[in-house]
């Protein structure tokens, strides 16, 4: 199946057709924020202003707060009612290649050994329609992580904005099946295809920020006990959780109970290795100091995760750099090792 295309002003009709079978989620504005939210059935103007969201699309699969089950104390003791995401199918439209890769990366963790039913249920029920980046941001460094801003193998369908048209390409079988059922798509000509290729090439070239990953494992290992280095680079860090919460691959969580009289819920919520409480035990805390926590975060992403799952847990989306109140820069820290 070759490339398809639609006029951008036909995107509305395209999405409407998708909406018949899927809940369509796409970049929208809510409370002054750009977020992935339910499509209002009208607007497609995000094509004009959308770069990326602050909260990454991992939140659609691994929400900041997840109610796992409800418990109630009855006559016969506690009863438990599982709270699973519903089985409805959804389409995430407009996910960026970096964020789609991030999902592939955390899939490995959530599917490892004990399968995480909440995350995996949502993954199984979702179809990703990616939107290639033509104009990456100043903070992007995805190219260093083997991600091309305009291309993706991690989505089901990939769109490229060629100005007048959206060029549509099936990536997975799931995506191909869907496209073959859609009306209103025309075949793309070679002219559009070469235009898309051109755009992808120039997008990749516009990425100037780099992260030096050569000899990474050895470098990180030999620097691990370099306390002076970690103290220096963590000095300005405010030890807030922004970098972890805006990270598309950070996946740490906490589990808590909520209770009202004889019933309540068990919820899991995002947690951050940047907080001292994260590892605090009654008698000791192995990562009490800020520099240890910062070291843990980078080593987790760039050493432990590759050792355990074979992939660096960073996609170069640049959110942590952009959102950090004191401009702690991962490329600088890894580069300085």
């Amino acid at each position: 199946m070759g490339y398809k295309r639609i006029k951008k002003d036909q995107l509305n009709a395209f999405l409407r057709e998708l909406s018949k079978d899927y809940a369509v989620v796409l970049p929208s504005r809510s409370g002054g924020q750009v977020v992935f939210g339910p499509w209002d059935g009208e607007n497609t103007d995000f094509l004009d202003w959308y770069k990326n969201t602050v909260i990454p699309p991992k939140a659609l699969f691994f929400p900041p707060v997840e109610e796992m089950f409800r418990f109630r104390k009855g006559e016969e003791g506690y009863e438990i009612e599982e709270l699973m995401p519903d089985k409805g199918q959804q389409i995430i439209f407009g996910i960026r290649p970096c964020d789609a890769r991030a999902l592939k990366i955390i899939d490995m963790l959530f599917a490892d050994t004990y399968r995480d039913p909440y995350y995996l249920r949502r993954r199984e029920n979702s179809l990703l329609i990616g939107l290639g980046c033509n104009e990456p941001c100043d903070t992007c460094f995805c190219a260093s992580l083997d991600i091309s801003p305009g291309q993706s193998e991690d989505v089901d369908i990939l769109c490229t904005d060629t100005g007048e048209d959206l060029l549509i390409e099936a990536i997975s079988d799931k995506g191909g099946n869907l496209l073959s059922r859609m009306s209103g798509l025309s075949d793309a000509g070679s002219e559009e295809e070469s235009k898309a290729r051109e755009l992808r090439k120039s997008a990749k070239e516009r990425i100037t920020r780099e992260i030096n990953l050569s000899g990474l494992q050895e470098r990180m290992r030999s620097n691990f006990e370099n306390r002076a280095y970690w103290e220096k680079v963590s000095k300005k860090c405010m030890a807030c959780g922004i970098c972890t919460y805006v990270c598309p691959t950070c996946h740490c969580f906490d589990i808590n109970d909520e209770n009202r009289k004889k019933e309540g819920k068990r919820v899991r919520n995002w947690d951050s290795c940047k907080f001292p409480l994260f590892t605090r035990m009654p008698m000791e805390n192995p990562r009490h100091e800020k520099w240890r926590r910062m070291r843990q975060r980078y080593h987790h992403k760039f050493e432990y995760y590759p050792m355990n799952f074979g992939a660096i847990a960073c996609t170069g989306c640049g959110r942590c750099i952009r959102e950090c109140p004191v401009n702690v820069d991962v490329t600088e820290i890894i580069g300085g090792i």
Binding site: L109, F110, D112, T113, Y114, D116, H251, C252, F253, D254, I255, D271, C273, F278, T279, R280, M281, P286, Q296, H299, H300, E303, Y304, M307, N308
Partner: peptide, 19 residues
């Protein structure tokens, strides 16, 4: 060994010593 744990199944991210 003892470390703070939450999930008990290798996902929540806090009980690691190295990898």
């Amino acid at each position: 060994l003892e470390m703070r744990m939450k999930c008990g199944i290798g996902k929540c991210g806090r009980c690691n010593i190295g990898n």
